[in-house]
Amino acid sequence: MTDLATELGSTLSNPRRAGLTALAVVVGVALASVHWLGLVVGGALVALPQGSLPRGLLAGFLFGGVVLSVFLVDLAAAGAAGGFLRFGLLRDVAVAMALGLPTFGALARGLR
């Protein structure tokens, strides 16, 4: 947890990096809203400004958490959150996709 806080602090302490990351999150969520590849691309976008591959992977994972939150809020607004929670295995797979695909995309940080 301490490591996580340290990593986050590192990103937030750099205004340029924080700005790019925020922009990447917005663009990534927008892309993920229209196509599943957006989850991968979004993960890559938020990872690229980070200082290292591990930090990039963490950023991708956290971006997945943002996606998951937006997704659940969207479902709740349509009165479908309860239905989603009853979806069993498919619910778990959707959560795994939300977190896993951006983290996978964050591997792109290693290409920089």
Binding site: S33, W36, L39, L75, A94, M97, L101
Partner: peptide, 19 residues
């Protein structure tokens, strides 16, 4: 499968269809 069930974009979750 991803087109049907990916969070946010998956057709299964299309909130507009049920709203």
């Amino acid at each position: 499968f991803l087109a049907d069930f990916a969070p946010l974009s998956g057709s299964t979750w299309n909130a507009d269809a049920r709203r």
